[in-house]
Amino acid sequence: MSLVERITTSADAKVWYDNIPIESLYTVGIAGEKFFRAIKDRGVIMGSVCPSCNLTYLPPMMYCERCLAELEEWVEVGTKGTVHTYTVVGVSLEGEPLEQPEILALIKVEGAHGGLVHRLGEVKPEDVEIGMPVEAVFKPKKGREGSILDIEHFKPV
């Protein structure tokens, strides 16, 4: 049976419609609280450091996943990075075409071994390149809520 094959004729075949009525309220956690507060209050991006594994986690974690040490050391990793990879999104989650295509990128931040997934702005899709240097553009402080969207997007440097 192929993926697209459907029962279209049987009058007896019943489908039962319902939903799962849940929503989720996530705490950002111990490390997340520090990370997002720094963005909200100071407009800086923080990473957490494991000195023994010589790693700087971004997004920061409260522990090192390699040695399971609790991480106490935090550093500012700057707001600049490079485009590690990207995609241009043309349809919404519902499958509708987007008026303005979105450019989503994985941005490697210098000084951290991880990176952030975020939007690219102030650039045309055809001008984006892997390896392109970019920097974070923050929302005005007043409008920040302690979320990843307090960074509006990354723009070419």
Binding site: Y17, D18, P21, I22, E23, V28, G32
Partner: peptide
């Protein structure tokens, strides 16, 4: 006092009887 994120997924199903 603490930061949170909220998500309301649309979990609608048609289950074959």
């Amino acid at each position: 006092k603490i930061l949170t994120t909220h998500w309301k997924p649309k979990l609608e199903y048609g289950w074959d009887a």
